[in-house]
Nucleic acid binder design. Sequence first.
DNA 1: CGTCCCGTTGATCCCTATCAAATGTAGTGG
DNA 2: CCACTACATTTGATAGGGATCAACGGGACG
Lengths: 234, 234
Amino acid sequence: MDLFRSLPDADLDAILHTAQVCRLSVGDAAFRQGEVADRFFVLLNGHLKVVQVTPDGEQVVVRYVSPGEVFGIARAMRRPDYPASTIAVQESLALSWPSTEWDQFTAKNLHFAANALQTVGQRLQDAHTRIQELSTEEVEQRVARAILRLIDQSGQQTPEGIVIDFPITRQDIAEMTGTTLHTVSRIMSAWKDRGLVTSGRKRIVVCAVDDLIRLAEGPQQAPTPRAARAKLEN
Amino acid sequence: MDLFRSLPDADLDAILHTAQVCRLSVGDAAFRQGEVADRFFVLLNGHLKVVQVTPDGEQVVVRYVSPGEVFGIARAMRRPDYPASTIAVQESLALSWPSTEWDQFTAKNLHFAANALQTVGQRLQDAHTRIQELSTEEVEQRVARAILRLIDQSGQQTPEGIVIDFPITRQDIAEMTGTTLHTVSRIMSAWKDRGLVTSGRKRIVVCAVDDLIRLAEGPQQAPTPRAARAKLEN
DNA sequence: CGTCCCGTTGATCCCTATCAAATGTAGTGG
DNA sequence: CCACTACATTTGATAGGGATCAACGGGACG
């Protein structure tokens, strides 16, 4: 488990002892955007979706949480409230602690703080990657990348190909990539025709990962003028 | 200075003593994307632009660094290399330390690590805000927000209005908002006609902040179907 | 076995990228 | 001080990717 790496067994026991177990059914929220961030969590089992809603009601999927990951650490960054809602997309199991104990944890073990910094750093990195994609890439590329990321994170090998092992809709993909469910549907239908994927209700199976990677990297040998100009200005 | 908040004076002296001063002329890079992240920095004076270039040569402006801010802390997040280039847009002055000393700093003062976590957390927050904007808002709104953020961070009150107190081009704004310099130019020309801003070469003055805020919040009383649908699905 | 939700697909429209070219402005060297 | 150059900005014309609007099909679950 990432967060507790290199923590002495004794301390680990003590910490686990103070944890509260939290069982979540599909649709349940571990916490909701705007609530006081009074606890932080580690996911043991299942999958969660982190969602932000804009002032005018649009949703954005921030990320999916897989087992072993920490979430809800707003308070550690000195944020009083949770910036997003975290909702189970599967039957899930998590541990949680009061946010106030965070400092105790870090005081007890220096690595703990460093690990947290690394975790948040990784997320920052991911966020910047996404900003780059949203700024410069076409929808099809972004959808391809999003799916590749998902199979990378939670892919299961099956006879027909690699399947994303939790339920996910076109709408979800759309909210991850800044587009609409319609466009996602069209794109994936085209892929299905070309034999790249098989997909059904809340289910995506990737048959030809290589081709998908090629799509994600975009049209080669065809730098847009915009790119060329930027290159010159460097 | 954010990073060194609540550090005893004695320690602060010791730390400052080991710092290397770094003077940057316009266009100089403190470091470049991909280089080994062997130092981290604090900006004393001036303004820097953090830029990422995509594999196909497009640029994205990650953020602007103002005096007092830390930058180049990739190593603290266990990244071996800098994920972006940081370039002076003005004559600037910075301090730097070897990345290897980071751990010494954190060991000496627990607050130090917490402050760093907070800083990175804030950046993560900002990045998510930007993702949200890129995903759901129109170009004009995004440009308005970008400029509001800039005057919030580095605005100078002048007789004609609030001016962004470092040189910035339409191209820069475009790279911050995921659009083209042409579109930015058109938008700002329209604003100029309406008396919202005055702008010249590498210079932007906001006359009517309130109106700009109204623009940034988008068309009220007119939720798009997309937003309405998302609202229902909640 | 009906209802709800998810997915698919067509038609249309509009925002904005792209292409093209002119104008304006700082800086530079003679 | 002025021509010259490089770069920033503006503005028009055009095209196209995707959002929007609309309607239907189909599997899951009660």
